[in-house]
Amino acid sequence: MANSESLEKNIVSIKHLSFSRGSRKIFDDISLDIARGKITAIMGPSGTGKTTLLKLIGGQLSPDHGQIHVDGQNVHRLKSKDLFNLRKRMGMLFQSGALLTDMNVFDNVAFPLREHTHLPESMIRSLVLMKLHAVGLRGARNLMPSELSGGMARRVALARAIALDPLMIMYDEPFTGQDPISMGALVHLIKSLNNALGLTSIIVSHDVQETAAIADYIYVLSEGKIVGQGTPQQLADSDSEWVQQFMNGNADGPVPFQYPAPDYLDDLLSSHSTTAN
């Protein structure tokens, strides 16, 4: 068990986490803490396992080594009933929204309430309308998921994620593929919900500007390691070349523009083989 002081301060505590898929190492002995009541961002290029990290925190995957504590409980030692109880206190916003396609917006938001509570239907209605109002979609309650734009689907998913008033919400790439207005709405929502509901937010993203604008603390991951961490300002001032490349979006740097290949001239002159070896 984590000690009480760090439990008070951190809602998620990851210690020496290693995780592999087949022979590919996704995380190699990483440790990080997520502070209560703050917005913490986990950033890194595509394919660094950011979504995998959320699935590990949510107990959907098990680590090879190391421990993950959420609100003082070791996620991977819990029995499935206790894990499900813990998940009721975690919201997760999937990249696709993951709305149930055979239900309308209202029923999607009501889903966790109907599954986990015995509230009367009139109260469920009020709660659902309040959550939908918070994300600005009270008027869209009768639409089916197929009738929503990508940004609206994510906002409905967000209303559903806060339906049970969780302690924390994990956002998986919330800004990917959004137009500027939807993006602005989501940035505003994440920030205001975090403050108004006293949540803890974990944002996994590679959209540097939007994430840096609202995050209190950022971890930058690459190739299974944490390569930088700090407040957005500290990262902007970082002297790590890697962090600078990522934060400024430079095409070339420690992460090379070219995929590893043999010498260019040799490659052009050797006409016998088409393979790069």
Binding site: G58, Q60, F84, N85, R87, K88, M90, G91, M92, F94, Q95, S96, A98, L99, L100, T101, F111, P112, E115, H116, A157, R160, L164
Partner: peptide, 10 residues
């Protein structure tokens, strides 16, 4: 991800 989403909603 509807099944996964459901798991995360306990």
């Amino acid at each position: 991800e509807q099944l996964s989403g459901m798991e995360m909603m306990a």
